[in-house]
């Protein structure tokens, strides 16, 4: 009894930590690259985007795991998308009301949380197969991992590109900054270097992906397998 309770707890913490370290959605699974590159010109924007995505992930994971027995397998993707789009609309409205400056800075990428591979991927791979509480933990862990990665990337780009961190200027007036890091090429470059650095961190059981692509949202080979399995 005691042992099984302990096992249960280690399993829960493993699910929570999974998204933060072992399967970090950005640096290990290489998902959600669009917002990662687009909004990380400032560390604050990275955190804002990360938290918005985390709320959507948490809510959609909870609702989808509750509805998993009701949703028929054939129409599951549209159902998941409607749930996710509903929460994205709510998050967008709340942000517009309470943090309008952040909402304006993130712009188009708030509605685009709907098509973030991480959210749909977790719905498909985790929430539709697991219980409510454990899905909530998974959403939370993935959200924290996403936020952390965006924060690191935003910090690097802000420090190199505008000589400040979290809005605090540390380079004296008149020192030229490398503003290319705030532009598109800098985004790709910093992301590439961060993925390479993440590979250097010695960690057990982390399987870095050799290539891009998302298993959760209709990858070519996976889809074929699924379809042949179904028919």
């Amino acid at each position: 009894m005691n042992n099984s309770a302990k096992n249960n707890r280690t399993k829960k913490s493993a699910v929570l930590l999974n998204g933060i370290l072992k399967e970090n959605p950005v640096l290990v699974l290489l998902l959600g690259t669009c917002p990662t590159l687009a909004v990380t010109t400032q560390a604050v924007n990275g955190i804002g985007m990360g938290l918005a995505t985390m709320v959507v992930l948490l809510c959609s994971n909870v609702v989808i795991s509750m509805l998993k027995s009701v949703i028929s397998d054939r129409v599951r993707i549209p159902c998941f998308i409607v749930v996710i789009a509903g929460f994205v609309t709510i998050v967008g409205m709340v942000m517009e009301a309470y943090v309008p400056s952040l909402y304006a800075a993130l712009g188009l990428f708030i509605p685009l949380i709907v098509v973030n591979c991480i959210v749909l991927g977790r719905a498909e791979m985790f929430a539709s197969k697991n219980g409510v509480f454990i899905s909530a933990l998974d959403g939370l862990g993935m959200g924290i991992g996403f936020t952390a990665a965006l924060f690191i990337m935003g910090s690097v780009r802000e420090m190199l590109g505008s000589g400040s961190w979290m809005g605090m200027q540390f380079l004296p007036e008149g020192v030229p900054t490398m503003s290319v890091f705030l532009l598109a090429p800098g985004g790709f470059f910093v992301f590439g270097v961060l993925v390479a650095l993440a590979r250097k961190i010695p960690a057990k059981g982390v399987r870095f992906k050799k290539d891009f692509g998302c298993e959760g949202c209709g990858d070519n080979d996976n889809d074929k397998v699924k379809e042949s399995g179904r028919s």
Binding site: L30, V180, L183, A184, P185, G186, G187, F188, F189, F191, G192, V193, V195, A196, L197, R199, K200, F208, K209, K210, D211, F212
Partner: peptide
């Protein structure tokens, strides 16, 4: 070795986007 695969692809994308600027 560390840059094999994904990181090198991203750096190449960076250079292509620099060209498009």
């Amino acid at each position: 070795e560390t840059f094999k695969g994904v990181p090198s692809v991203l750096i190449a994308a960076s250079i292509l986007s620099l060209a498009f600027m």
